[in-house]
Design a protein around this nucleic acid. Structure first.
Length: 526
DNA sequence: GGCTTTCTAAACAACT
DNA sequence: GAGTTGTTTAGAAAGC
């Protein structure tokens, strides 16, 4: 066997083990195969699906991916098994007190589908909730409907002790991936009883997607050679423009060190659907794809932060009535962007892309981290690679390291020769300058949103809380509140990097000093 | 062994 | 008052 086949075989074994461990009987096939009616094109799975790149239409059918893995082919779909589930489980000596199968139950020996019916799904509660919410038409559900969805799709919970509902509520409350939606604000006229609606925080949607992707038997777990790259988790649509699995991730600036670029997604969408009418499927050139990514990325860095935010907000306001565009995905749980008709066979050059992007005042840009004291800001705006492990892991040192890495990367690009502007120091000063410059509304919202315990309030943040507590705010001290600088040093670094790369690509950008780059900066495209 | 994540239980308050 | 919802704390298990 060729060496490159070995991981594949191991993965297959892993998938099989993972599946049999968690869904060793017809439960899975029944629960997922016949009961789950999720539309992949409108659910969270659309993003996962798209990352495979080239899939047949058949594979777009709900849960066909499960069957495509051949993992279900031998499963018995008889209904009687379900009826015997409880009885069979009761006889399972390996069952813990909650009726779950303890880890390792199926590690040794063959799985007996007659014994292990209704074992616990392999998804974490956050994943279950995520799927439930994503499967709802409005991408928001009351907790009661979340219960129902979980029960409907995972029969295990029909017989499980009710403690799992507590876990669901606990997860909703503590997991920052989920947000409570004010009923009035959400303009839900339906009577949903008491309680709130819950939705997925778009900022954390990639995390949840990755959590889903981490599920042992996930169909695309093994597909993408670069699926460990954080960029891919964030930028599903890029798979839209590339069916080449060997394609490298887009340019690394901005995310190679773990800092996500929330606006990049939208920009790529704009590049794909906007005036460029680029249709990569018409052109198989790998370089072209890179050009698109590169230009998109570089342009991101040349757009002022305030416009990024506006663009981000604008995208968030998309109406949910727009159906999903074929091959596209919703962004962060939002309604998908409405596609503009494409004009095929128009291949833009990098210069075209750059020129268009540079002239577009509304192109989004990422929001950069604000204050280290603002947990929410750190978590939502400075989130490193989106993973569930990262989800709750935001140590100051890690963040500073990310900052330092980014600074070093930009430094290595020989961009900013201002010696007084040490990147690391600048980043920290930016942080401190932003301590009180964040709007009260935003902070209130963030603090309201994040709560103060569990997954969110973590002992790892205690030191930061202490710092904040021991550091009187400017407001408290009645000091003048600093205004946010028009462009942070980090922005300048990014812009500088963009300039350098544009120049390398043969595009002359403005000679205006980077610190004073404005959206109207002249750019000469050669 | 320590850390992190996740799950579970329990208590409590607020609300319907 | 009962039931539901939401929050918080605590502890344990499992994986790395």
């Amino acid at each position: 066997m060729p060496p490159n086949r070995k991981p594949e075989r191991l993965l297959k074994r892993h998938l099989t083990l993972g599946l049999s461990k968690s869904f060793p009987s017809a439960t899975l096939s029944r629960a997922l195969g016949s009961r789950v009616k999720m539309d992949l094109n409108s659910s969270c799975f659309a993003e996962i699906k798209l990352e495979k790149g080239t899939m047949d239409d058949d594979e777009l059918r709900p849960l066909s991916w499960l069957h495509s893995t051949d993992l279900l082919k031998d499963m018995n779909l008889d209904d009687e098994e379900d009826g015997n589930a409880k009885e069979n489980n009761a006889g399972d000596g390996m069952m813990n007190k909650y009726g779950n199968l303890s880890a390792g139950d199926h590690q040794d020996g063959p799985v007996d589908p007659k014994r292990h019916i209704n074992s616990k799904p392999p998804f974490s509660f956050s994943c279950l909730i995520f799927m439930a919410i994503e499967d709802s038409p409005l991408k928001r559900l009351p907790v009661k409907d979340i219960y129902q969805w979980i029960q409907d799709h995972f029969p295990y919970f029909h017989n499980a002790p009710t403690g799992w509902k507590n876990s669901v509520r606990h997860n909703l409350s503590l997991n920052k991936c989920f947000r409570k939606v004010d009923k009035i604000k959400g303009q839900i006229s339906l009577s949903i009883g008491k309680g709130s609606l819950w939705c997925v925080d778009p900022d954390y949607r990639p995390n949840l997607l990755q959590a889903l992707r981490k599920t042992p038997y996930h169909p695309y777990h093994h597909v993408l050679p670069y699926n460990s790259h954080p960029y891919q988790y964030h930028q599903g649509p890029l798979c839209n423009i590339s069916s080449n699995p060997n394609r490298l991730p887009a340019m690394h600036i901005g995310w190679s060190n773990g800092i996500p670029l929330p606006g990049h997604l939208a920009l790529v969408e704009r590049l794909l659907n906007g005036p460029l009418h680029y249709s990569p499927t018409q052109h198989n050139g790998l370089d072209t794809e890179r050009e698109v990514d590169a230009a998109a990325t570089m342009m991101m860095f040349r757009t002022p932060p305030e416009q990024r935010v506006e663009e981000h907000a604008r995208l968030k306001s998309f109406s949910p009535q727009h159906g999903p565009r074929h091959g596209s995905i919703p962004i962060g749980g939002m309604a998908p962007l409405q596609a503009k008709p494409r004009q095929p066979h128009v291949r833009p050059t990098l210069s075209d892309l750059a020129e268009t992007a540079l002239n577009d005042q509304s192109l989004p840009r990422p929001r950069l981290a604000s204050t280290p004291y603002n947990k929410a800001a750190l978590q939502t705006k400075c989130t490193p690679a989106p993973s569930m492990s990262d989800d709750h892991t935001y140590s100051l040192s890690a963040i500073l390291k990310a900052q330092r890495d980014r600074a070093q990367q930009m430094d290595e690009a020989c961009i900013d020769e201002d010696e007084d502007d040490d990147p690391v120091e600048c980043d920290m000063s930016d942080f401190e300058d932003y301590v009180d410059s964040e709007s009260d509304m935003e902070q209130d919202e963030e603090s309201k949103r994040l709560g103060d315990s569990g997954y969110i309030h973590d002992a790892r943040f205690d030191d930061m809380d202490d710092i904040k507590k021991s550091t009187p705010s400017r407001k408290a001290l009645q000091l003048p509140i600093k205004k946010r600088p028009p462009r942070s040093s980090m922005d300048n670094d990014l812009a500088a990097g963009a300039d350098a790369l544009l120049n390398l690509a043969g595009i002359k950008t403005s000679e205006v000093p980077l610190r004073s780059i404005s959206p109207q900066a002249d750019v000469t495209v050669t």
